[in-house]
Amino acid sequence: MKLLSFLISFAKYSLSFIFVLGLWEVYARYGGLNELFLPRPSKIGDKLYNLFFKFQIIEQGTIYWHFFATLAQMSIGFCYGIVIGNSLAVLAAFNETFRRYIAPYAVVFNVTPGIAVLPLIIAWFGFGWESKIALATLVCFFPPFINTLTGLLKKNDEAIELFQTIGATQSQYFWKQQLPNALPEIFAGLKLAITTALLGTIVAQFGSATEGVGILMQRFAFRLDMAGSFASLVTMAIMGLLVFTIAELLDRRIVFWRDTKGLERVSKKKQRKLSTDG
């Protein structure tokens, strides 16, 4: 039943895409579409086929290499970003002086699009992976910082009183109440961070790079190879969807109490565990 409804909605979505692509193709073939601007889908498809299945080499590697390089740069940047963002958030949550006097700098600087620092980053870190990682880190640390802080500071007077009456220590309160209570916000921050990290990586690749989907896009576009550009765009969309789906799945797994389905799943699991233990 669930599978069936999933298949139906999947088919509907695909049909909607196919319909639009079909119109586009027909218009390009018989109408006046200027293919210098917008290449027809079949040409993009052909390009994608060449890239993905004929292992055409562009710049210094196949598309798989560029794909991997981008994901790797993004992941490293993302990791640095969330470590920095969350550490700052915990610091700010526990230290009022820090929260009052230092944290505002993060907020003020967040006004500058982190991307504006790109030329400086390249000057400092060079044309290699470091600059991509640095920009990804820089643009993605803020969402985890602000979200985690908000989550940890959620007003919770009654829970505090409860924990006090049962004689819990500060660290017990943190691990058993404050942190789980903040998880929805924390994960929302992570989801934002992972997409901005990808963005930062790609933009840094525009600046200069020898590998990565960003540089593919840049090169194709500058050669006015529109089919190639759109093929890179499709590749990035795939990458985006992949990253997005992973983030979404993790979020649902860990913050299971957000919806009833998740609650049922975990409740069943715990029940099973209890019965096997007993």
Partner: peptide, 20 residues
């Protein structure tokens, strides 16, 4: 479906195409 696709794609990556 288009919105999901749009959300997941790093839209800023279209930059070079627009500039070209």
């Amino acid at each position: 479906p288009w919105i999901i696709l749009m959300e997941a794609t790093p839209r800023i990556a279209v930059g070079p195409i627009f500039v070209a």
